[in-house]
Nucleic acid binder design. Sequence first.
DNA 1: ACAAAAGTGTTACACTTACACCCATGG
DNA 2: CCATGGGTGTAAGTGTAACACTTTTGT
Lengths: 245, 245
Amino acid sequence: MPESHPAPQRFPVTVDVVALTVRNGELNVLLITRLIEPYRGKLALPGGFVLAGEDLQEAAGRELAEETGVEHLPGHLEQLGSYGPKGRDPRGDILTVAHLLLAPDFPVLAAGSDAEQAAWYPVRDIQSGELQLAFDHAQILEDALERAKSKLEYSPLGAAFCGEEFTIAQLRAVYEAVWGTRLDPRNFHRKATGTPGFLEETGRMTAGDAGRPAALFRLAPAARPTAGQPTRAVLNPPLMRPRES
Amino acid sequence: MPESHPAPQRFPVTVDVVALTVRNGELNVLLITRLIEPYRGKLALPGGFVLAGEDLQEAAGRELAEETGVEHLPGHLEQLGSYGPKGRDPRGDILTVAHLLLAPDFPVLAAGSDAEQAAWYPVRDIQSGELQLAFDHAQILEDALERAKSKLEYSPLGAAFCGEEFTIAQLRAVYEAVWGTRLDPRNFHRKATGTPGFLEETGRMTAGDAGRPAALFRLAPAARPTAGQPTRAVLNPPLMRPRES
DNA sequence: ACAAAAGTGTTACACTTACACCCATGG
DNA sequence: CCATGGGTGTAAGTGTAACACTTTTGT
């Protein structure tokens, strides 16, 4: 740390959130349409300035709540990394700390007419170039996807995309959407249920769907995030994502 | 990002560097002795304020160069994560972006009398509580160690601790020091040399040491960091660290 | 000759993969 | 009864763990 006789440079600091969810078997990301310059009318990650007396995670949660209208966010929030401050915003040097939210599909509330409207967009549409993002947000999204993919291998956080209770098939759909691969349902079932400290049977079953009813599971206590201490539980051996050729 | 009619809060931003190396088979970290308040006389991570027009990595490299007297840093530098800004510095809200340097053992030059003197300290001495760190630097160090441990599993970055050319035994010593475990020399040898895209034989051998001479290796081209693009090469399957019971 | 460290072979076991097969429900 | 998806069994293949053994140097 510093010897700071000349007063140190100060920077505006923003938090941006890459909120991911799985809808209809497809990975989606939460984006807002910007109402002001720069990049007015363009899509961007939700986020905003960190306020005095706030911590980063706190600010990320607040911004996300403001822009979705959802008070208590479901899912798992973690820091992704920091970008800048040089040359990423036409208004000047702004540092941003990107965050990653892995969440079950939750409905976004309509904002008032003067607020930025958040909505889910398929990740594929950004990657294909069909939709473009403001600032360096495409890069941040890429990094977030890479992080999400490896998180699923080594941690129980795939379940963060599901609700409290879920079937193995729902969990598998998460892995398939995030990794962009197909997985053998039978082997996945064995691996997921057989990994100690990952899943716990609820005793309840699904009903009404086609086919045989499925058992409902929840995260095992060891894998659940506790207050303050986000889960450091690890899947060992990892759930392996198929090799990219 | 923001709608910012009220001018956004600005924060001082520092970079801190957890520089790790292996000396005598033991993991060491580079620390400075603080010459000014707060925490005057205490040990801390090297670092300092980000200047206008600087990027984070750039600032981290500059600070480290200033505090070690070493112009061109060897090894691998990456971002670790950001901490704060709330309540981590008695002078006020300061955001810090921590970085991780994995480097071969390099000599630290003596600083002038008014500069902060950097030196290597065994990580064990901090973990045991024998040495204490200023600010939240103990936490940052913990996070850095965790990151370093997993980097060694999935990336070829163990070699960042070695020089250009190294023997398998030297590389193994890195893994043992970082993971704090013993590894079977024979299985490690097979795994390291057998992993495609990791190591490349130089054709040269050691001489003068006890025992049979060892072949010298370097990182394979695929695993070497190229300008701008830090290596994303991956060991698949990973080099596995022994399970913690 | 002996110690020390490098490097190879071999066997047992763990885990993954692929796929045959049975189970339980809705239509 | 059949389609649909849930779930179990099993055998081949791949990789790890443990360790006996050979090779090549310094003393």
